[in-house]
């Protein structure tokens, strides 16, 4: 009988934490729903960014700075100011890019540039917090809840050649992305940190 009581006690002891903690899948769904809800009210976004690249092919970390702008539904401007002035903007299917050496901006068709198309999809998805699209592209796990940090492993065949996983961090109020880390096979990584983010401030139409 003593043995039986001991066994029951152990069993209860094991079950109690399971009953107390939330299922990780349910927690992720809840977090994603909250992120989607919070981001739904964001029409424009402007932010400074710092990009750090840790690459095997460079002796030192590559650091660049600039400013990022977004306006719903599909306007985006990525403006690097250091170490060189360059960048690109997207407006629907079309866009243009510029560089301090070249001077004037050069238009491009996003459909003709698969690389740029991929980057644009990613940036727009994160800026809009497009959970539906992201769930189709990545297997997500919740790294931390406060602040929200997600780990994303690409689902598309062939993507693993370029990306091992992404890690995305959100601001404390879960409205926008604060950090993006791209971890590549072989150990290279890129980290983009956004700071001084302004939400729903009027943006000059000339930016796009």
């Amino acid at each position: 009988m003593k043995r039986l009581m001991l066994l029951l006690t152990l069993l209860l002891a094991c079950m109690t934490p399971a009953l107390a903690e939330e299922d990780p899948g349910l927690a992720l769904d809840r977090i994603l729903a909250e992120l989607e809800h919070s981001a739904a009210g964001i029409e424009t976004l402007a932010s400074d960014f710092v990009q750090e690249k840790h690459l095997e092919m460079f002796r030192e970390t590559l650091v660049s700075r600039g400013r990022f702008y977004f306006a719903r539904p599909d306007k985006l401007r990525w403006e690097m100011t250091e170490p060189v002035a360059s960048g690109f903007l997207l407006n629907g299917d079309s866009g243009s890019r510029w560089h301090e050496r070249a001077g004037a901006a050069v238009p491009f068709d996003i459909a003709r540039e698969p690389g740029m198309q991929l980057i644009a999809q990613q940036l727009l998805a994160w800026a809009r917090v497009d959970i539906v699209w992201l769930v189709r592209q990545y297997r997500m796990t919740l790294v931390s809840e406060q602040p929200v940090t997600l780990k994303l492993v690409p689902l598309q065949a062939g993507a693993e050649q370029f990306v091992e996983y992404l890690q995305i961090g959100f601001d404390a109020e879960r409205r926008y992305v604060e950090t993006v880390e791209v971890h590549e096979p072989g150990g290279d990584s890129t980290r983009i940190s956004f700071a001084g983010t302004e939400l729903n401030q009027p943006l000059d139409p000339a930016l796009f």
Binding site: F58, S64, W78, M80, S86, G115, L118, L123, F162, E184
Partner: peptide, 15 residues
């Protein structure tokens, strides 16, 4: 400079 751009991680192998 291409490596500095957001596309850099896609272009790295080719470069």
């Amino acid at each position: 400079q291409r490596m500095l751009s957001p596309e850099g991680w896609l272009l790295k192998g080719g470069i």
